[in-house]
Nucleic acid binder design. Sequence first.
DNA 1: GTCTATAAGGAGATAGAC
DNA 2: GTCTATCTCCTTATAGAC
Lengths: 222, 222
Amino acid sequence: MARLSSADRREAIIHAALRVIQREGVHGATTRAIVAEADMPLASFHYAFRSRDEMISELIAYVVENEGRAATATLSGGHDIRTAVRAGLQAYFDTLSTDPSREQAMFELLHYALRTDELSELPRAQYRMYRRTAGDVLSAGAQLAGATWRLPLEDVARLLVTFISGLTLAWLADRDDAAAAKTMDFAADSISALAEVASAATSSDTGTTPNNTEQHSKENTQ
Amino acid sequence: MARLSSADRREAIIHAALRVIQREGVHGATTRAIVAEADMPLASFHYAFRSRDEMISELIAYVVENEGRAATATLSGGHDIRTAVRAGLQAYFDTLSTDPSREQAMFELLHYALRTDELSELPRAQYRMYRRTAGDVLSAGAQLAGATWRLPLEDVARLLVTFISGLTLAWLADRDDAAAAKTMDFAADSISALAEVASAATSSDTGTTPNNTEQHSKENTQ
DNA sequence: GTCTATAAGGAGATAGAC
DNA sequence: GTCTATCTCCTTATAGAC
């Protein structure tokens, strides 16, 4: 392992800590477990970080910055918006069911931060990141489908994040794939009903939106 | 405090533990903190429970059995289903924002159970209880509004629980009341669109369903 | 039966040898 | 600079006095 720069060592510790948290939970991520995972002596931890909480704080900031991917890759044109939203949800769900410990760790870190005074601003940032990521995907998806959102993008993004959070939590609790599929079907219906076809003409004779029927969402009261 | 039966002592400890968990989090609920809250000597804890995990297990089972209330009370007739659903969501949200630590504790306990082998079945029971409670409210609400659900009740209940979980988590993270209100508006629209007026006639000239327009939810694929 | 006093171990953090 | 060895505190759990 030899000589590492201070920054490298901090990053190595953060990555090791993330692996430990995914495997054992936040509770099991003791300084000893982390340095064992990173194959370092215990003292290196406090050489790199002043305290365990400082490390956790940097770790959450790190994952909040670097975990905004997943669903983006699967976007492709030629589909109506309902199909695109459903496919995006499925892509997310596939990453979830392939590696549940990742999302489980994100939840645990959120709750840990909520209970720690100095970290109490981080959950807000975490959710802001979720919404931004969702907004990016929704924006790109609408463009590819030739549609526009009837609500502000950030509102649609928040609703999508609400679905995804609820879906993830329920699936982590009961591991019911069929139930998750039903939830995703409903979410795709509800979210895509907030879009309208942007370009021209009748929307139903192109065969691209067979399942979207009219729904006038009530104006938000707030 | 004097002499308590074994069952009374267990219950006193569980209630004290719940208070500590709401105040300090699951992590802070040490045996010492709990017996201090219950005003008992430390040894009483292990006189009543074999281990801390056994107590936590009983505690989760207890809250899963006894936390199925909240929204039911506010049900009243004379409203259309959309209004009823929205009011139910608001009633839930009011209890959430009055005492956030209660729902925060429920989440923490869920994640604790997910990480503890002997407790890994409890999250499933916890969600089953959520869905049953939601189903009861939805069933009663539909009856009062003179409507029926076009999907199986348990499916609608699961979707409502998805909304509530996502809503709760987001609000705990960012405390954005206005955003929560928008989410509830959308949830009320989407859920109530799954109902249809049961009894007779035109549904729009009574003035009871001014905001519900048709939405044919796609048949579930699963 | 009940509680004081203590055992046994794990945690974060650091002094001081190299 | 780096790491071994240790300090101090706090945890769960229990032995044994009353």
